[in-house]
Design a protein around this nucleic acid. Sequence first.
DNA 1: TTGACTTAGTGTCTCAATAACACTAACATT
DNA 2: AATGTTAGTGTTATTGAGACACTAAGTCAA
Lengths: 245, 245
Amino acid sequence: MKPITSEKEFLKNYNIHDFDVPLTSVDMSIFSIIDDELQVLLLKRNDYPAKGKWALPGGFIDKQQDSNLEDTAKRKLLAKTGVSTPYLEQVSTFGSKQRDPRGWSVTIVYMALIAADDIKLSTDDSSDEIKWQPVYQLSNKPALAFDHNEIFNHCYERLKSKVQYTSLPVNLLPEEFTLTELQTTFEIILDMPIEKKSFRRRILDAQILEETGNLRTGNNRPAKLYKANKLGKDHFFQRSIEGPR
Amino acid sequence: MKPITSEKEFLKNYNIHDFDVPLTSVDMSIFSIIDDELQVLLLKRNDYPAKGKWALPGGFIDKQQDSNLEDTAKRKLLAKTGVSTPYLEQVSTFGSKQRDPRGWSVTIVYMALIAADDIKLSTDDSSDEIKWQPVYQLSNKPALAFDHNEIFNHCYERLKSKVQYTSLPVNLLPEEFTLTELQTTFEIILDMPIEKKSFRRRILDAQILEETGNLRTGNNRPAKLYKANKLGKDHFFQRSIEGPR
DNA sequence: TTGACTTAGTGTCTCAATAACACTAACATT
DNA sequence: AATGTTAGTGTTATTGAGACACTAAGTCAA
């Protein structure tokens, strides 16, 4: 067999099946605020392995449809929730010999934030059971399939730490929202009270919101409605929100 | 063919070669400060694809040796630099149809920080050419193999942003160092001057260093030597180092 | 129509962290 | 002993945030 002397020739002789590669998938934690609680989407596995256990949504890369990893995550998310423009962020990649009984496997983990109003759950394909689970019920119990508890915890920690110094929570709200609604969203995620004046000063100074001109009316003084501007969809603050002194 | 009714049975019938999975590798940006410059390790590729181009060190998972992704990164790093206890952090994972001419591929990217003193470069295996490249010479030229320029830029951005609010740079220094040396390391990475008093107050207040009792003597007043304590190896500050007002 | 109630939004004080910068301290070298 | 150089400190002004009491603007019920 003669030596290979060009890239073209190399590629002709190359066959991925000659290599012993790990199984590679994409999994995701999809967060939303439902009934004033931070919740995450779970699916009950319909097939082996881990049949019958609850798991984070995910699956394999479709080499035909997906041109990159984010495509894969978006496709999964659209199929399950009907949301096509989520906030999507890669969190981490887990890979080991032990995490899946099928052997060496790798999973790229994403976190998505979606507004409750946009969700249209579909039990699309395999009639999987699907549910929203409040995160505080999940951080303790080690009940999920594979290493999905660990994966979820990473996502939850990432969400909490990033909320400290970004305007991420706008992605959990509808297009228009009041400052009080935004503050409440921060408080739900961080699970701690935030001082009203400091919060408003900081959000407004950061120049990530603009008034829509509309008002939310109710049983009391109407509140101005805001929406996130271009910066607001993924903006870093100067300083972080801190707890009480 | 009868239906599968247990996990055990499922695993017996499972064969990864029935699946069309992507090629999966681990790549890394290895940073060190050499000649008062932040530099990154590059290898010249000895084989197709991208033969003859400079690339970040990396390679495939060894299903026999490596029990997880970090193992894989550590093994590569040890082979190339002789360093066995680096600071190692997963940065991101890149995967797409286009990034490698062989087709759909995924690479998990790590960044490593090592002290210049610990390095023993080895042209171990395939007599690859190996070199340190100053990062400022790399951020512009798109000369590396595959998408390694993009990958490197991610690592460099991560390093710079993380240095803002952590004590990461201790990992680029030898065991013992002076506060001025640590400050200089910060300044080299951030490429901006830092005010001396503020820097010292913040580092000392953070309680991440302890005096070793030794002094660095020279042609002037001797400086106290410090080493990082347990916290110091990966500690988050309260607030970030900021530029001039 | 008026006053109680509720939530929106503001004025202002205090405190803590830090950038700025001028200062003192301790060595070697001549 | 004087000079130069780097280590290390004292002190002020600024800034951003927490605390909290205040005002503003609506609904609703009597």
